[in-house]
Amino acid sequence: MKIFIEDLNFQCIIGILDFERKQEQDVIINLEIEYTYDKNEFINYADVAELIKKTMKQEKYLLIEDALLNLSQILKENFSKINTLNLKITKSSILPDCRVSVEELTSFDS
């Protein structure tokens, strides 16, 4: 089974530049979760989205790469049924003429 969360938009502190540490900026999260579905145990996508937003706002990551690695670990800890996770973080307004993204595919041993 796969869950897709596309274009989850919110603002948070992320980045290494001085102004990025002071002013929240727009981020967009896209993810794909592959998991083993069981009628009695499923992954609630609303809980996934909320956990991502809460974590990103609390942690105030310096690098997108660090956010990806940490979020992957936190999601697996909270949703043990995850087999693979493809997570992409986009900073949509950091450069005037493009969006910048970093993506990570993580496979967990089941």
Rank of each mutant, 00 (worst) to 15 (best):
I94E: 14
I64L: 02
N78C: 11
S72R: 02
S72W: 00
A67T: 12
I74C: 04
I5A: 03
I13V: 05
Q73V: 12
I3R: 07
T90K: 05
I33T: 07
N78S: 15
T55I: 02
I43F: 00
L51M: 09
L87R: 12
I14V: 03
K54Q: 11
V48M: 04
N30M: 08
N30A: 07
D66I: 10
E77T: 09
K57Q: 13
L8Q: 12
V100H: 08
E59G: 00
I14E: 03
Y37W: 04
K22D: 04
K76Y: 11
K2D: 15
L95Q: 08
E34W: 00
C98M: 15
I33E: 03
D109I: 07
I5H: 10
N44W: 07
I13G: 01
L8N: 15
Y45N: 07
K54M: 08
L31S: 04
Q58I: 06
E24R: 13
L68C: 09
L51S: 03
K39E: 15
I74H: 00
V48T: 11
L95I: 12
I74L: 06
L85V: 06
K22M: 01
N83E: 15
Q58F: 03
Y45P: 11
D109S: 13
N78P: 12
D18W: 05
R99N: 14
L105G: 12
D97H: 13
K22L: 02
D7C: 15
D26K: 10
M1A: 13
D109Y: 05
L87E: 13
I52P: 04
F10E: 08
T55A: 00
L62G: 10
S93P: 10
M56W: 03
Y45L: 06
F19Q: 07
V27R: 01
D66N: 15
K91H: 13
I16E: 03
K22H: 00
M1K: 10
K76L: 11
E50T: 05
A46D: 01
Q11K: 14
R21G: 03
D38N: 15
K81P: 01
T90D: 06
D38K: 07
Q73M: 04
F19T: 04
K53G: 08
T84Q: 14
L63E: 09
S93R: 14
R21S: 11
K54H: 05
D26Y: 02
D47K: 08
